[in-house]
Amino acid sequence: MENYIVRVYRREEGDPEAVVGVLENVETRQQRVFHSLRGLCGMLACQPPSAAPASPDGTQAPDPRTPEPLADAGTGRPR
């Protein structure tokens, strides 16, 4: 059995597909970020997050000690 926690942090009004959140494998505590329902489903359908490579819709949650470059406000995602 595999156990996961799905946390949703943002939903786009009028676009049910646009969901931002984190999928966490509770055994390994490894987290992956998704930016769409398709991305989330892809993570669950393909491989456990601990083993899955980064995909277009789902990216490995980076180490918080190494910040990503910021995007312009209003675009939703960084460049």
Binding site: R10, V33, L70, R77
Partner: peptide, 18 residues
């Protein structure tokens, strides 16, 4: 807020937060 959203979710703050 901006730092954590960018680092951990790869998003920027919402219009409301701005």
């Amino acid at each position: 807020c901006r730092h954590n959203l960018a680092t951990l979710l790869q998003i920027v703050p919402s219009k409301e937060t701005e």
